[in-house]
């Protein structure tokens, strides 16, 4: 759980940095080149296979754990809510939301880029010897639809809470707990859980209002 989680956390960081090129203000040139690179570089392709595997592992492990934990607990208490943060007790729910969001997200872009070429126009840039897909325009188009924007925001809020507990929890599970460093890890975790989803959320909002 913790190892796959930490890997996915690093992926999020890389993914965000790439996507921030949407804001480059160059009509999408940088972003489209980046998309093309990501889609065709064999090394990236190899890593992405691993990524899918990790996502799958993380989800399956998580759901199995949630199932076993549900069995271990007979029922909830009537008199009040116990200790512990809401997020920490609802990781499976949050994770499922994030997973659902991912399916929508990949259906929108990844599937279309890979298997539905007709839905995306081609574009050519000076210095490139071939035409590449204009993913940028596709993104623009998608985020003009408020339903998508809202769906993305919900997904990202779920991600924020999921990370809020998950980040520091991963360290605890690996036994990396220390009088001095643990408060620092918790701080970084909190910052990560706010900034990364926020960074992602800026994109649809920017597109929608621009």
């Amino acid at each position: 759980m913790s190892l796959t989680g930490l890997f996915l956390i690093t992926f999020l960081l890389v993914h965000l940095i790439g996507n921030l090129q949407l804001l480059a203000g160059d009509e999408g040139q940088a972003f489209n080149i980046y998309s093309d690179f990501m889609a065709n570089n064999p090394l990236i392709q190899g890593i992405s296979k691993g990524l899918y595997l990790f996502i799958l592992l993380h989800a399956i492990q998580g759901l199995m754990m949630a199932w076993k934990n549900k069995k271990a607990k007979t029922s909830k208490y009537a008199g009040g809510r116990g200790s512990g943060s809401w997020a920490s007790k609802n990781m499976a729910l949050l994770g499922t939301l994030v997973l659902a969001f991912m399916f929508i997200h990949m259906g929108d872009f990844w599937y279309k880029i890979k298997f539905d070429s007709n839905s995306i126009n081609a574009v050519s840039y000076a210095g490139l010897d071939h035409e590449i897909k204009d993913v940028y325009s596709k993104v623009m188009e998608t985020f003009k639809n408020p339903i998508f924007v809202v769906a993305y925001l919900i997904g990202l809020i779920a991600l924020a809470f999921h990370l809020g507990h998950g980040f520091q929890s991963a360290f605890q599970t690996l036994g990396l707990r220390h009088k001095k460093y643990t408060p620092a890890i918790n701080f970084v975790g909190l910052a990560f859980a706010i900034l990364i989803p926020l960074g992602f959320a800026i994109l649809p909002l920017y597109m929608f209002f621009n």
Binding site: K68, A72, G82, S83, G84, T173, L174, L176
Partner: peptide, 27 residues
């Protein structure tokens, strides 16, 4: 069940035993 680091155990322990113990055991 499995531990998912909720921390409620530590909060309710009448002897205030820390979840440091859990991290150390995981290690």
């Amino acid at each position: 069940g499995f531990c998912s680091n909720v921390g409620a155990c530590e909060a309710e322990c009448p002897k205030e035993i820390s979840i440091d113990n859990i991290a150390a055991m995981n290690r």
